Structure formats: C-alpha cells, structure tokens
Amino acid sequence: MPASDYVKNLRARVGHDLIMFPTVSAVILNDRGEILLGQRSDNHQWSVIAGMMDPGEQPADALVREVEEETGIQVTIERLAGVALHEVVYGNGDRCHMVNTWFRCRAVSGEARVNDTESIAVGWFAPDALPELNPFALVRIRTSLAPDAPAWFARPGENGVPGY
C-alpha cells in the first residue's frame, strides 16, 4: 500500500532519517484456535496483521480498521497483549521506530482474503504449524495466546523484544 499523505509529507521534510510511528497489530484467533497471518507484499514474509495509526485515531479503532482493510475479517478485541518499540528499515532506506500496540482478537465475521495491496496471501495457521516468522511476530503471538495473561512490555532498562 502506498504511504499515506501524512507519511509522504513527513518524508518530504526528513528524507530517510528516523521517524517514530504509532502502529498496531492483531493476533487473530478463529473458533478452531488458528491464527490469521498475512504474507506481506513488500518482503514476502508472513506476519501478524498490522498497520500504522492515522493521526487522531485510537489504537483499538486503528486495529479494527486495519484488519478489515487487509483481510476482510471483522474482529472483536479480547485484550491488550503488549506494547514494544521495534526498528524497521525499508528497502528504500527509510528508517522508522514503530511503537507497536498489539491485541488478542477473535474473528467474528468475514472470509479471510487478500483485501488490499499490502498482502499477497492470507491464511489461518495452527499455532504448532506456523510458517517462518520473524522474532517480533513470534513474541506478539506468544504473548497473545493465553486468554488472560497480562500485557507484555519491555521492563525499564531492558533493550526491547527478546530475540529481535
């Protein structure tokens, strides 16, 4: 998906320099306990469904919007699962620190499908049969699976997501 006007305006001012963005992601479970993943169009890696928040948008609203835009699935949020900063460097050299808030969600309606240009595939996977995922995706999944676990975050003095 092309960058929003907001991001384009920022990039016009700072070039490839570091920008911090608020982002959200969803660990979405269906009634069979499978997890919905998307295969990204930019790097072809599988990951949880995620996206940037728009200015003025609440994290939960951004999450529900992003999931439906990318997959056609409507979700209900069950709980906050974690918050962490992670660095992303895009192929064009743009540097970002993403402050990601992730949620455990339940699919309530819709058919999973590629619904925009951000993904080349979407699919449901059993937790013990996941495709290759980066460590940050695995942390988000691991911290989301228990229905009543506390939200994960890096403790003061910790450097971030373990293994990432």
Rank of each mutant, 00 (worst) to 15 (best):
R40I: 05
S47V: 00
H16I: 11
I28M: 05
S47K: 10
N30L: 00
R11S: 08
G38V: 07
H16S: 05
D42Q: 09
R32V: 00
V48F: 03
A50R: 10
D31N: 15
D42F: 12
V14C: 14
G33K: 06
A50T: 10
I19F: 01
I19D: 01
N43A: 09
D31S: 15
D42Y: 10
R32S: 11
L37P: 07
R40S: 10
I28W: 06
F21P: 03
Q45A: 14
S41D: 06
V48K: 00
G33F: 01
D31A: 15
R32D: 12
V48D: 04
P22V: 00
I28V: 14
H16T: 10
D17S: 15
N30P: 05
R11D: 10
Q39S: 09
I35K: 04
A26K: 06
I49K: 05
N43D: 13
G33L: 11
V27W: 02
V14Y: 15
A12V: 00
R32W: 01
I19G: 07
H16K: 11
G38S: 08
V48C: 12
A12Q: 12
I28G: 05
P22L: 04
S25D: 00
N43S: 11
T23M: 04
R32L: 14
V48P: 01
L36N: 06
V48L: 07
N43G: 13
I28E: 00
D42W: 12
A26E: 07
G15A: 05
Q45T: 13
D31E: 15
R40F: 12
S41V: 06
L29F: 15
N43P: 06
S41A: 15
L18P: 01
F21S: 07
I35L: 05
A50V: 02
R32E: 15
A12E: 13
V48H: 01
H44L: 13
R32M: 11
S47N: 09
V48Y: 02
I28S: 02
I35R: 02
